[in-house]
């Protein structure tokens, strides 16, 4: 049986988990900040991750990956551990294109959870949280 310590969620150690593998590592997604309620992850700009090279904004697909990750991480924050979960649904509203060559930061909070499901809401922004590029809600099934 796995000890609780092994699964304990420590925000400052999150980068080890994010940089380890897969789509998070490819996109360079990293811990940015957190409060007791929310957590922020950041995704640096790359010319490989834009929509149209002439415009230079990060693609909505890359942003959706950040939204999904940050929403899931905000549940780890509330539950205090890396506990198994899967995304049930995700809705992203695009408010404006991201500024060219800008790092995208997503802030998400898990505002309700019980034994089987967790509800999250968040935004993505390039400069300030007051001027978001995207609004997101996502529901997760807790396993």
């Amino acid at each position: 049986m796995t000890s609780d310590a092994e699964w304990k969620f420590v925000p400052s150690e999150l980068d080890e988990f994010l940089a380890d593998k897969g789509n998070n590592a490819l996109l360079g997604i990293r811990y940015h900040a957190h409060s007791p309620e929310w957590i922020e992850l950041a995704m640096p700009w790359s010319e490989a991750f834009v929509d149209d090279p002439a415009a230079g904004s990060m693609a909505t697909g890359a942003i959706m990956t950040l939204l999904d990750n940050t929403a899931g991480t905000s549940i780890y924050l509330q539950r205090g551990g890396f506990l198994p979960q899967v995304t049930l649904d995700l809705r992203a509203d695009y408010l404006r294109p991201a500024k060219p060559r800008s790092t995208i930061i997503c802030r998400s909070e898990c505002f309700k959870w019980n034994a089987s499901t967790a509800l999250t809401r968040g935004i993505a922004y390039d400069e300030t949280p007051e001027d978001p590029v995207c609004h997101v809600t996502a529901t997760f099934m807790l396993l």
């Binding site: 593998k21 897969g22 789509n23 693609a59 697909g61 959706m64 990956t65 950040l66 999904d68 995700l90």
Partner: peptide, 18 residues
């Protein structure tokens, strides 16, 4: 491919969304 996995061996939800 491993570069687009979430859990090992599974496509990331972000890649599916894209």
């Amino acid at each position: 491919k491993p570069e687009i996995c979430g859990n090992p061996g599974m496509l990331h939800g972000g890649a599916v969304s894209t």
